[in-house]
Design a protein around this nucleic acid. Structure first.
Length: 270
DNA sequence: GTTCAGGCCGCCA
DNA sequence: TGGCGGCCTGAA
């Protein structure tokens, strides 16, 4: 058990922000997270966060995974005081962080995300993990499944993942798994590239377009300059930034602003 | 019953 | 280079 005081960290907001599909509420204030072959339960009460894992595991993995060494308050403080819309969005989603998730898992996940709803995306990924992932048990006795390696999916028929409810996205994931497993695209190499270079390389993957590539860069490579434009963001930009989003002002952390806007659009209009 | 999801591919002008 | 039809499926 590790308990930490946190700023600008809210596990519920992160869960429903839609960047991680393997995080879910267990009860009111406790969430489970599967990442990097690990499992943890997190309980938050105000600023106090309790991670149900050993101190060593928190320090070596989860602290970095949740990007807890970064000062998101500084990003929020830099928001244009005249930009009421962005300030409201950042206020609502001030507990969001850009998680440092696995590159391959993000690639597959955002291939699945296209033209899809978040509820179904979660189910698709859960199905894939339970069918092709590795079954494990946490110290607390909870059974969970890891995300399968590309090699495990590369050998499948292109339509095999329709069994996991992927629909037409099945061949995107299988072909991409092959490209990676057979070395046509090297993820380790991509990790060493700049944002534009990495994006160009990801665009070679079948089923990866401009938007998905940006999501992979933001969530799988932590390139905070990536600014994925989906239907929601596109509509928000039209409504609130007639002359375009001031990307230059937020250079270096545009993706954080994108997440505030995305979260605000989906959860701000109750 | 309809619409529409965190789009992309393939085809056509 | 840009526009458009088609695509699996199931929440809402």
């Amino acid at each position: 058990m590790v308990t930490k005081e946190t700023d600008n960290f809210n596990i519920e907001q992160i869960c429903i922000s839609g960047q991680c599909f393997r995080m879910e509420p267990i009860d009111g204030s406790t969430y489970s997270v599967v990442a990097g072959g690990r499992y943890v339960e997190i309980t938050q009460e105000g600023k106090s966060c309790t991670f149900r894992c050993a101190e060593e595991e928190y320090e070596s993995f989860w602290r970095h995974y949740f990007d807890l060494d970064e000062d998101y308050g500084a990003y929020i403080k830099n928001i244009d005081v005249k930009d009421d819309y962005l300030r409201s969005a950042a206020l609502l989603g001030s507990g969001i962080r850009i998680l440092r998730q696995d590159l391959w898992e993000m690639t597959a996940s955002f291939l699945i995300s296209q033209q899809n709803n978040i509820t179904r995306i979660r189910r698709c990924i859960s199905n894939i993990c339970e069918t092709y992932g590795e079954k494990r048990e946490s110290a607390s006795g909870r059974v969970y499944y890891t995300f399968p390696e590309p090699e495990a999916l590369a050998e499948l028929e292109e339509d095999a993942l329709k069994e996991c409810n992927l629909g037409y996205r099945s061949k995107y994931v299988v072909r991409t798994a092959r490209s990676i497993a057979y070395g046509d695209v090297n993820l380790d190499h991509i990790r060493s590239l700049s944002y534009p270079e990495a994006k160009a390389e990801l665009l070679k993957l079948y089923g990866v377009g401009d938007k998905v590539a940006d999501c992979i860069c933001l969530f799988g490579l932590h390139h905070l300059d990536a600014f994925p434009v989906d239907t929601h963001i596109s509509q928000a930009l039209k409504a609130h930034y007639r002359r375009g989003f001031p990307k230059r002002r937020y250079k270096g952390y545009r993706g954080v602003m994108q997440q505030y806007i995305f979260y605000y659009e989906l959860n701000g209009k109750r």
